[in-house]
Design a protein around this nucleic acid. Structure first.
Length: 493
RNA sequence: GGCCCCUUGGUCAAGCGGUCAAGACACCGCCCUUUCAAGGCGGUAACGCGGGUUCGAUUCCCGCAGGGGUCACCA
């Protein structure tokens, strides 16, 4: 097989989408697996929606995911430029060639006219399509229209009665009848090529051998095939990967939660986890292991194991996977990821004193095992912050613990003991807890759950010993005192 | 609506004519932990329907149904 050359060609109209990230990943895995090359280029022919900020964001997201490319934006290469807007001169002669070979023609219909045509057609119960009004304009007519100030578009003349065969690497042979395709626009009236035209030119000129992209492009493929043929370009291999669906089983969109990779990044997911998870959406490794690092993914990846059916994005599994990676991540990484969330939630100061920082590191360390993603830190570590802790609404287990008849005694006993310390360590806390239990003849849940609720107001939370140590005895005593008065309505024991 | 794709548990999925139909997430239970998680062990749960082909269909073929995509001077 000739050297594999694949590409990822996002359009900068928004941040990198989960679906786009998966396409990029598959292309990257494919290229790396076969020792080929990945090209990243930008499809910015939509002047209205494209923005340079998005381009930067997308590239940043790709890098964050750990994907690198051999040619294209930022890295250069022999086939540049890599932004379509900078390639306009390159496209021009091909449009001219199509025009002169009569494979394409100028169309002067205005958008309003076309819109009216579509409406009339569908009102008459027919399918809306371009009727080919300008298909056979004479030179004289064209000149008249031009003189009248009309800016024509260039339409591709779709031949009749042809069968277009897409030999897809994941879907097999897919046939389309050319009759179902209306003459489509390849150059807009402002002289900028449309996606279907530019993408073919770029792929052909850049020597792309395999096109791996989302299934939404499958029905575009016959149009592109027509252009390849008209221009005598070699047709690359296609592999259309099934879509990623939202919970409602429709194409993932904004309204179903986080869809951009920056969002996951901000929420404190690790790129390794997202990559691993995305790789498993639409592809499955041989064997039973699912936690696979980039190296393993590269060596295992193959198109044969890419699934044809669409996959629902399962956030819970991503969270589970991220938890796995979080477990093995160094504390410093997790700490940095948690920090902004804690600041934003108002739990900690913007600028930390060294002592405070050291304390906070211990806090994060004590809750890290409970985190599916770092944004959860504000919730999971909430117990460490604040002078008092309110009793959580709807926490039945907490109420049950307080309902224990020994609860008031446990709480006040610990309060008294805590008051005697200026600070305490893990050993001391264990010892004190043991004493309380012994004195009141309470142990297990009745002891520890009660203390947990008394000190934090809830039944779930960080490791109790760690919580007490890091809160410190004085704060613990005040919290317990508060619990006594407010949770148990006791002025004193 | 036309065209195209898809159809194994709630979700991701293995399977590529003969299996007690893997595994993972989630869920439930037990164990461990003097608490909460994590972890360990176990459990509930699936081949959309109807026709063929075949000695035998989850697997091959044809319908149907359902879901999705696409029909732009968006990509």
């Amino acid at each position: 097989m000739a050297k594999v050359r694949v590409r990822f060609a996002p359009s900068p109209t928004g941040p990198l989408h989960i679906g786009g990230a998966r396409s990029a990943l598959f292309n990257w895995l494919f290229a790396r697996h076969y020792g080929g090359e990945l090209i990243v280029r930008i499809e910015d022919t939509d002047l209205e929606r494209s923005a340079p900020e998005y381009e930067a964001m997308i590239l940043d997201s790709l890098r964050w995911l750990g994907l690198d490319w051999d040619e294209g934006i930022d890295v250069g290469g022999a086939n540049g430029p890599y932004r379509q807007r900078e390639r306009l001169e390159i496209y021009r002669p091909f449009a001219a060639q199509l025009l002169s070979s009569n494979a394409a023609y100028h169309c002067f219909c205005s958008e309003e006219e076309l819109e009216a045509e579509r409406r009339a057609l569908s009102a008459a119960g027919e399918l809306p399509r371009y009727l080919g009004k300008c298909r056979s304009l004479t030179a004289a007519e064209r000149e008249r229209l031009c003189a009248a100030g009309r800016q024509p578009v260039v339409r591709f003349r779709v031949p009749e009665g042809r069968v277009l065969l897409v030999d897809d690497l994941v879907r097999g042979r897919v046939e389309f009848a050319s009759d179902g395709i209306g003459d489509f626009i390849i150059v807009k009236s402002d002289g900028i090529p449309t996606y279907n035209f530019a993408v073919v030119l770029d792929d052909a000129l850049m020597g792309i051998t395999h096109i791996l992209r989302g299934e939404e492009h499958l029905s575009n493929t016959p149009r592109q095939l027509l252009i390849y043929q008209a221009l005598n370009f070699q047709v690359p291999e296609f592999a259309h990967i099934s879509l990623i669906l939202g919970e409602d089983r429709s194409k993932m969109s904004k309204r179903q939660g986080a869809v951009s990779v920056v969002q996951y990044r901000e929420d404190g997911y690790l790129p390794e986890a997202l990559v691993n998870f995305l790789a498993l959406l639409g592809w499955s490794p041989p064997g039973e292991r699912e936690i696979l690092d980039r190296r393993e993914l590269v060596s295992l990846f193959s198109l044969e194991r890419v699934s044809k059916s669409p996959a629902v994005f399962n956030l819970e599994k991503l969270q589970w996977m991220n938890m796995n990676y979080l477990k093995n991540a160094p504390l410093s990484v997790i700490f940095e990821l948690c920090l902004p969330h804690l600041v934003r939630a108002g739990l900690i100061e913007d600028r930390l004193s060294p002592g405070r920082r050291a304390w906070l590191e211990k806090v994060v360390d004590s809750v890290r095992a409970k985190l599916s993603y770092c944004a959860q830190a504000t919730e999971v570590a909430a117990a460490f912050f604040g002078e008092t802790a309110e009793l959580a609404d709807g926490d039945e287990e907490a109420r049950l613990a307080l309902a224990e008849k020994t609860a008031p005694a446990v709480i006040s006993s610990l309060r008294e003991k805590a008051r005697q310390f200026a600070e305490w360590d893990e050993e001391t806390v264990r010892q004190v807890l043991k004493e309380v239990g012994k004195e009141l003849n309470v142990k297990g849940k009745a002891l520890l759950m009660t203390v947990r609720v008394g000190v934090s107001g809830r039944s779930h939370g960080p490791d109790l010993t760690a919580l007490l140590v890091l809160l410190g005895p004085q704060m613990a005593a005040r919290r317990l005192d508060y619990a006594l008065k407010n949770f148990l309505n006791r002025e004193d024991d």
